[in-house]
Design a protein around this nucleic acid. Structure first.
Length: 762
RNA sequence: GGACGAUUAGCUCAGCUGGUUAGAGCACUACAUUCACAUUGUAGAGGUCGUUGGUUCAAAUCCAUCAUCGUCCACCA
């Protein structure tokens, strides 16, 4: 007769997880040993590299719940003979962390520049380390059975080494190159961004109609006659860029402008002459049908410029301020300010027809929502076309699968349309690109921009004394300098995704690592939908490149957690739900059970407290059913019952049904149908095991004497089946099942940890 | 502008390759119960499966169309 608390107390969860981590069995090597010792078959390892959360803040509910999918897979596999590795880590998250920490500094009245690069890096590192500790605790709280002896941070020296190797190899093969082209500059983060790192947002804006008068008197006359004004009218959302215009383009089929193609107009204010050119891609319907071309500050215009050999005139710098060969009065102005000033002057000159207020799509920085400034600059690029092709092949052959299926098409489309990837960022927080310039970066870029010219030409044309050969060196350490040659180090860092794209093999020690041999390729990947292109797409490409194998063959995308009202959770809206709150109120198991059923791939899951509560009732039911059985077992009977459940049991109908049940649930898990799995364990345990079997046994032994054969027989079977139920329920609800297991252990009715037990054989 | 997905009970969703009275959880109603269960048990109400057509002996399930919502992609000045 055992005295147990009347209800399951989730406060004990911390102690339970301590047992797991202290046992070391989350380590696949130890688990393999354990299996061997228990005389079990040791099957193929099961491996998931966990998505590393950003080390710049707390985990939100989405992170925490996401891990319950990794964990249900991991625990099930561990309990079916697979030494299991759930490999945890944390991500340095370049831009985001730099922004967050810089903000943090400014709140203390300090700035990044004051600290200097080295100190800033140091401080940010400390900041991340404390966040990492928090994050780790939260992961443990949901019951994540990860191997923390292998935990990594993306900036760990060992990982950086592997990332550098990859870069160096890519460089040698010519996949990596420096190029001067139009890029997305975030004037606030002060760095270049890849196309994928920007988003489109509808904002209010203006549409200004400006007249560019013709240079020749006769053209002006003709224009007055045909167009009503003495010039050609262009419409633009960004008047300030006109200072960098180098042409006006019209459609060759456009009757209105046919007569003016090839003629010159005078760019107002800038007082420069530019030509009217014709290009078929010009839309006659938009605006006035005549478009100003600013190759330096619009990617479309850049392409037109390239096609027609137009000059590139830079008028905006990386801070989003006006600069370059423009009238002095505009220099240093913000673009918006300049736009207003220009409009005023144009109006005075009678060259501004009108300004319309419009709503239009604006490109913004994904991190800080600041409008992107397209500018020309030198950046490092990775040619991913061949890698994307390989990835695409794997999808077509069915070797790479995405759940839900619809997203597989999206991924396929992404690979098809892929553009060179800009991998350099002008940040301090991250891995410095391991490049050294002999004679400096400027020399290299000059030679690169002026094809065919030599160092001597550089000396002549710029009047500067070169301090090197203009060559590059790839490596972590500064190369030896000979004959006074100066090696200047690259100051840019890698895009964060360049390193996290290598996560599945870098975390295993790289292609030569011991763990790599044992655990690569990994078994599957699970993460939220929103980083499919950023992360999985890159992991697939980088994995194929570095290891010639897919890093995983299945990608399972979790549903998105929403606020209770169905809107996106965000701290600024104040509608986010703190994981801690839920843990304290309902315990981790209840949260996990809710998530399995609601967060299916491709669906949204608004947090509903009543539903979590409903699952808490189930958790409690498991506890109480177990408690009831234990209460019915008398101390004097334990020895005999224990002996029976250890030995071979007679096959009964209940036994068979349980066996079938375990099999069915296993199939659900293997097919990633966690919702069906959790529904099934609930249905079976509650409405069959409890409502029918326990009730039957209760009735059968009611009048039996303690120690009688009938009692021993019934109770042994019931206990045996309880244990099998606990096992199959364990992956879904690890805490309560392990708690019960430990209570059984105390009585000698079970041994060790439920986590490392093996499922009822099929 | 394009692609993809969704539309099933009050809410969140299951319903795989078409086949008897369409399911779950939560919420709801009635009765029972303090017998292990912050309850639990039993019973119940609630859906013409977004629209309109089509294929079929048979459709929530396949096809087409429209509508609404969502996500992603896209340089439209």
């Amino acid at each position: 007769m055992q005295e147990l608390p009347k209800a399951y107390n989730s406060d004990t969860e911390k102690e339970i997880s301590k047992l797991w981590y202290e046992s070391g069995l989350t380590n696949p090597d130890k688990m393999a040993e354990h299996l061997k010792e228990s005389g079990e078959e040791v099957k193929e390892p099961f491996v998931i590299t966990l998505p590393p959360p950003n080390a710049n803040g707390n985990l939100h509910l989405g992170h925490v719940c996401g891990y319950s999918f990794h964990d249900v897979m991991g625990r099930y596999m561990r309990m079916t003979g697979h030494p299991t590795l759930l490999l945890p880590g944390k991500d340095h998250a370049g831009i985001q962390t730099e922004t967050v920490f810089a903000k943090h500094l400014s709140e203390q009245g300090k700035s990044k520049q004051e600290l200097g690069r080295e100190k800033f890096y140091e401080e940010t590192y400390k900041f991340c380390m404390s966040n990492i500790e928090n994050a780790r605790e939260q992961e443990k709280r949901i019951g994540l059975s990860a191997d923390y002896s292998r935990e990594l941070f993306t900036l760990d020296p060992g990982l950086t080494e592997i990332v550098y190797e990859t870069f160096s190899q890519m460089f040698d093969e010519g996949l990596v190159y420096r190029d001067k082209r139009i890029i997305n500059q975030c004037p606030s983060c002060m760095t270049a961004l890849a196309d994928i790192d920007v988003e489109h947002e509808e904002r209010r804006g203006i549409f200004a109609y400006i007249i560019y008068p013709f240079v020749e008197e006769e053209d002006r006359k003709l224009a007055k006659e045909l167009l009503g004004v003495e010039g050609i009218t262009v419409a633009t959302t960004r008047p300030e860029t006109m200072l960098g215009d180098t042409a006006v383009v019209v459609n060759p089929k456009d009757k209105r402008y046919k007569a003016f193609v090839g003629k010159k107009v005078l760019l107002p204010i800038a007082e420069r002459e530019i030509s009217v050119i014709a290009d078929e891609d010009t839309d006659m319907e938009m605006g006035t049908g005549a478009v100003k071309v600013t190759p330096a500050h619009s990617s479309v215009d850049f392409e037109i410029g390239k096609k027609h050999g137009l000059e590139v005139v830079n008028v905006i710098n990386e801070e989003g301020k006006m600069e370059g060969d423009i009238p002095e009065r505009f220099k240093g102005m913000e673009t918006v300010e300049c736009s207003k000033a220009l409009s005023k002057e144009l109006e005075k000159q009678g060259l501004l027809i009108k300004i319309e207020n419009i709503r239009h799509e604006v490109t913004v920085c994904e991190r800080c929502r600041t409008p992107i400034e397209p500018i020309i600059s030198n950046q490092w690029y990775l040619d991913v076309s061949s890698l994307a092709k390989k990835a695409q092949k794997n999808i077509k052959k069915g070797k790479l699968r995405v759940f839900p299926k619809g997203q597989q098409k999206a991924l396929s489309h992404f690979f098809e349309e892929i553009q060179p990837w800009c991998i350099s960022r002008q940040l301090w927080w991250g891995q410095r690109i391991p490049i050294w310039y002999s004679g400096g970066k400027k020399l290299y870029d000059w030679l690169h921009e002026n094809e065919g010219k030599s160092v001597e030409d550089y000396k002549e044309e710029t009047g500067k004394e070169p301090t090197g050969t203009g060559k590059l060196y790839v490596g972590a350490e500064r190369p030896e300098s000979k004959n006074g040659e100066v090696w200047e180090e690259e100051t840019d860092v890698f895009d964060t995704w360049f390193s996290s794209g290598q996560w599945p093999f870098s975390t295993l020690g790289g292609p030569d690592g011991e763990d790599f041999k044992k655990f690569y390729p990994t078994s599957m990947m699970i993460h939220a939908r929103d980083i499919l292109f950023w992360w999985s797409a890159r992991m697939v490409m980088m994995g194929l490149y570095r290891t010639e194998k897919l890093p995983f063959s299945d990608i399972f995308l979790t549903g998105m957690i929403l606020a209770p009202d169905g809107s996106k959770m965000s701290k600024s809206k104040g509608n986010s739900v703190e994981p801690k709150e839920i843990f304290e109120k309902y315990g981790a198991d209840s949260l996990r059970l809710w998530y399995y059923s609601d967060a299916l791939p491709g669906s949204n899951a608004p947090v509903r407290e009543e539903k979590i509560k409903g699952n808490r009732n189930f958790v409690n039911k498991v506890w109480n059913a177990s408690r009831f059985i234990l209460m019915n077992v008398e101390d004097s009977e334990i020895g005999e019952i224990s002996k029976r459940i250890e030995g071979p049991m007679e096959e009964t109908e209940r036994m068979k049904r349980t066996r079938d049940h375990v099999k069915k649930v296993g199939e659900y898990i293997e097919k990633y149908q966690f919702n069906l799995g959790s529904e099934k364990i609930r249905e079976f345990f509650w409405h069959e095991f409890c409502d029918i079997w326990i009730e039957q046994v209760k009735e059968s032994i009611e009048d039996e004497e303690i120690g009688s054969e009938k009692r021993i027989l019934y109770l042994s079977e019931l206990l045996y089946l309880l244990k099998e139920n606990l096992k199959i329920m364990h992956p879904f609800m690890p805490f309560v099942t392990e708690s019960v297991w430990q209570e059984l252990s105390k009585l000698g009715l079970a041994k060790g940890l439920l986590m490392s037990e093996q499922m009822m054989s099929r």
